[in-house]
């Protein structure tokens, strides 16, 4: 029996690795033929994304630029909000409320992103346009706000876990020296959790990068270089979703979309690896004692 279980685990482990390798191969395999039409330099550094124009332009730089804008604005909103929320749950909220907040967060994180896209489109965008007098309500800020709403629960829940599980010995050590609850939090717990928090930030960023639906719906989808957060933009992931359906197979446009997929894949992969490295480093540092 144990033998069979061992074998199942062994096989499923290798299968999942094989699938990742296959995905990578598939992405790159469908990307490479693009270079017959457009050079890697045109692809990575081209400033125009007009794949259906004549002649077509396959430069992903504006998409990359918009991805960076939206992702960073989102993480700028998400991380501090998650941090404050996590501290609220662990240190401010009454014990009974804590439990419900935690459950609420977990439920909220499983709301399909298309619903937030809908809210961004039908409530936030008109509000931006009519009340705040923006040129368009479908812009970077709207996308970042909606993206933050869908992202916040995950880092909040993780931070909450880390803060609650923080070494009781160290907490008592600080309190025995006369530190109150707040000083224990700011001088021992938070400094002690720098590593995990950095790693949580990276994981959130990875999730934001890959999020497609919201940005597709509310960012306005203009493949231009934004100069401020009130302008529309188009990111890598939503470009694939928006265009793949109308793109004939085995055309340069088709290959270029796979190229975008490969770029996204590599970027998310790198971000996750950086997050993991930070986490492992931190753990090793803590183990030294």
């Amino acid at each position: 029996m144990k033998n069979i279980i061992d074998r199942i685990i062994f096989v499923s482990g290798w299968v999942s690795i094989a699938i990742i390798v296959a995905i990578t191969f598939f992405l790159f395999y469908n990307w490479i033929p693009l270079f017959k039409t457009a050079s890697p330099i045109e692809f990575f550094f081209g400033t125009l994304w007009y794949p259906t124009a004549i002649p077509p332009f396959y430069g992903i730089l504006p998409l990359l630029d918009a991805t960076v804008w939206i992702s960073f604005l989102t993480i700028l909103i998400t991380f501090p909000s998650a941090f404050v929320l996590a501290i609220f749950i662990t240190h401010v909220a009454p014990k009974r409320l804590r439990y419900f907040l935690k459950i609420f967060l977990e439920i909220f994180s499983s709301v399909p992103s298309v619903i937030l896209g809908l809210i961004g489109l039908s409530i936030v965008a008109p509000y931006f346009q009519s009340v705040l007098n923006m040129d368009t309500g479908q812009n970077i800020l709207n996308a970042a706000l909606m993206l933050s709403l869908i992202t916040i629960p995950m880092p909040t829940s993780m931070m909450e876990d880390f803060i609650s599980a923080f070494s009781p010995e160290q907490k008592e050590g600080a309190q025995a020296l006369g530190a109150n609850e707040f000083e224990t939090l700011t001088k021992v717990i938070i400094p002690g959790l720098k590593g995990p928090f950095a790693s949580i930030a990276m994981l959130s960023l990875g999730r934001i990068f890959g999020e497609t639906m919201i940005v597709l719906m509310v960012a306005g989808n203009a493949a231009i270089f934004p100069t401020n957060i009130f302008q529309p933009a188009r990111v890598l992931s939503s470009t694939i979703a928006a265009e793949m359906g109308e793109t004939p197979v085995d055309t340069p446009h088709f290959y270029a979309l796979f190229g975008i997929g490969a770029v996204l894949f590599v970027m998310t992969f790198l971000i996750n690896i950086i997050g993991e490295v930070i986490r492992i480093r931190y753990e090793r540092q803590m183990m030294k004692g």
Binding site: S167, Q170, E172, G173, A174, L177, G178, P191, M286
Partner: peptide, 17 residues
């Protein structure tokens, strides 16, 4: 249960508090 800080910071922790 020292804090994951320097030796110096550990000793002065209470004073700073």
């Amino acid at each position: 249960n020292p804090f994951p800080k320097s030796i110096y910071e550990n000793v002065v922790f209470g004073l700073k508090i």
